[in-house]
Nucleic acid binder design. Structure first.
Lengths: 108, 108
DNA sequence: TTTATTAATCGTAATATTGCTATAAATAAC
DNA sequence: GTTATTTATAGCAATATTACGATTAATAAA
């Protein structure tokens, strides 16, 4: 089928899944790390950083934007993509909430 | 194509991508949360918890196992799936390493 | 106005994922 | 041995993802 029935899960579960799914590609990880390392960015730069075509990089940027991990501002003739500070923090929080809800089990 | 060329990225980037990709489905998030909440588990229980068939749950468990987020031990006639404590900690660490490498940019 | 530059989108193809039913394999209970 | 129980796997169909080249749209430069 290939169709995830999101209505069967909680809002929280879907939020975490959407977030991690957006992170789940090395190119998108690479984009985020690059954005972090240089503090700001335009897409042209990224295409040179990545082993991908301009169209593919644009698609990955769109995915990151939809997950609100980055935001894009028009900067004259090009786009300035940046980490979305607010949602970056929230992403970290909800992930750590999950990680921290586990404390060594007494089984296995 | 649908084929990610992992050889074009760093080991670190691929590790993060593999981890987050494994987390990127609400059913797998739900499985992890359930495992955490009850400290131990057998698959039979899970099938009743989730809106999925036994076969599909088994597949998701396999994905989580391959990402080393959980481990399965044979427990008599059934399987005992648990959070993989060591790798759970590592997962948290490498994700936080990324999250913490960002500190509010001075752009946008 | 014409010509670059930049980034998004369209169309396409290959591969992956999701999910099911049916089946297999392994053990436990009878 | 036969029959349940439990989990994994095979096989299949539908949808999603990844990636590309080509095109579009918008602005800047000439």
């Amino acid at each position: 089928m290939g169709l995830t029935k999101i209505e069967h899960y909680t809002v929280e579960q879907n939020e975490l899944a959407v977030l991690t799914k957006a992170l789940g590609h090395p190119a998108r990880i690479a984009i985020l790390k690059h954005l972090i390392s240089i503090d700001q960015c335009i897409c042209g730069d990224l295409v040179e950083e990545l082993p991908l075509s301009q169209a593919t990089v644009s698609q990955h940027l769109k995915a990151l934007k939809e997950a609100k991990l980055i935001k894009g501002n028009i900067e004259g003739t090009s786009m300035c993509y940046c980490i979305d500070a607010k949602n970056w923090k929230r992403a970290k929080e909800i992930l750590n909430q999950m990680f921290d809800s586990y404390s060594d089990a007494n089984c296995c």
